[in-house]
Simulated assay, not measured.
Amino acid sequence: MELISDYEYTLPQRLIASAPPEERTSAKLMVIRRDTGLFEHHGITQLPGLLQPGDCLVINNTRVIPAKLQGYRTSTEGKWEGLYLGQAEGGAWRVIGQTRGKIQPGETISITPAGKEGEEANPDIPLLELELIERNSEEGSWTMRPRSETPFLELLDVYGAMPLPPYIKREGEKPFDRERYQTTYAEEPGSVAAPTAGLHFTPELLDQCRQRGIEVTSVTLHVGLGTFRPMKVERLEDHQMHAEWCEVPAETVEVIQRTKASGGKIVAVGTTTVRTLESASQEGELKPWIGETDLFIRPPYEFRTVDQLLTNFHLPKSTLLVLVSALAGNKLISQAYKVAINKEYRFFSYGDAMLIL
């Protein structure tokens, strides 16, 4: 029986990366070789040489939206904080929020324009009012209607901030967050968290991979609120995985099938890419697919499409750490994390990476 307590470890606070490295490609890269159980230590710039010509990198092209909202209850002026989760019918928003007291349908929340850390919000920008329509059972969220005809992405760009993970302890977003908490290949808006393994890539690094004969193709998975939520059960089999929207286009399936037919490896960039590809492979063979997935990849799991994985270092007792362990084995991953702590790798979203071969 797999228990969540099997995925616990102690991390010194100083190793939590609260800011990105100076350059995207300055991250360290630990290589785990499953065939020998040995670890190697490189930099992310050495990735092309660690992969083989004929391999295929699969990236997640989702785009993080500035979904974090701040304001106050219009009736009491009590502080309110929330997170935009997605669109509802008729242009309404799905939002999760917290405030003192119990809010009721019909109330309004006044959203203040987002200000950068150390800056005052522009007083010339009016407040955005959100009317509470109804409370949803799903995730404890609300359906709210903005009192504005402006498209939601334009509103979020003004009133929202980047939804940095809760373990990054600072007030407000810094000027670099809008650029650095986003992959350089982000295209499809919809995530409330970054697919962090992709944060290390520059266009130049991807070109170096292509020049080595490595194909690059993409899927989309919009990372949801559940990525921040810890598991609250002891047995992994009792955990209900959150659902996330994803898509595997037909052209991506063709590239992957061609790669496999020629003996190349499928290298997923990030756990979100793994989840997307494996969700589209549940009938045994990868097919074009679009929809929501609640697939929980945990040991023992037979991977149908993904062969190798580039990923960051994940939170203790998280579904992401469980997924990585399903690919490489809990014992080997536990050893790797101990080595990473000893060698002072940087952990979590803005941290360093590991490559599982």
Rank of each mutant, 00 (worst) to 15 (best):
E81D: 12
L132G: 04
E138I: 12
G160R: 05
I125R: 09
G172F: 01
P175C: 00
E77N: 15
G160V: 02
K169L: 05
P175Q: 02
E154Y: 02
W93I: 03
P105Q: 08
D124C: 08
R145T: 04
Y185M: 06
E107W: 14
P175L: 00
P151D: 01
M144S: 09
L155W: 04
Y181P: 06
P166W: 02
G106Q: 03
K102N: 13
G140I: 08
T150M: 07
Q104V: 14
P189Q: 02
Q87P: 04
N136D: 12
M144C: 10
N122R: 11
V95S: 03
E107M: 14
T184E: 11
E173L: 00
L127M: 09
G115E: 14
Y185R: 05
G106M: 07
K116V: 13
V95R: 01
E134H: 13
R178E: 06
R94G: 05
D124F: 09
A186T: 13
E119D: 11
P146R: 08
L155A: 01
G97F: 04
I133N: 10
R94K: 11
L130I: 00
E131G: 10
D177E: 06
D124N: 14
K169R: 09
R178N: 05
A92Q: 10
D157F: 00
G97K: 01
I103C: 15
L153K: 05
S110T: 13
G106V: 04
F176M: 00
G71M: 09
D124P: 11
G71T: 11
E187Q: 14
L155E: 02
S137I: 10
N122W: 04
G86E: 03
L132P: 02
T108G: 15
T143S: 11
K79N: 12
P146L: 04
P165N: 02
G97E: 03
E107Q: 14
S191I: 04
E154G: 07
P113R: 12
Y72R: 13
G118P: 07
R100A: 14
F152V: 09
E154N: 09
A88K: 13
T76I: 03
Y185C: 03
E134D: 12
T108W: 15
A92E: 08
T74G: 13
I168F: 01
P151S: 06
R100D: 15
L85A: 11
E120K: 15
L156V: 05
T150P: 00
K116C: 15
G160L: 01
L153V: 08
G78E: 12
S141D: 09
T99G: 12
E187N: 12
E188V: 15
G71W: 06
E149Y: 08
Y167F: 01
P175F: 01
K174M: 07
E119Q: 14
G86T: 07
G82E: 02
M144W: 05
A121Y: 02
I133Q: 13
W142H: 03
E173M: 05
E171W: 00
Q104S: 15
G71I: 04
T76A: 03
R135W: 07
R147Y: 13
G82A: 01
R147P: 06
Q104H: 12
I109P: 04
E119I: 08
T150W: 04
S75A: 15
V158F: 06
T76C: 03
R170A: 04
E134S: 12
G172Q: 00
T99Q: 14
G78W: 14
T184H: 15
P189C: 06
I111F: 12
P166R: 00
G106D: 07
G86A: 06
I96M: 09
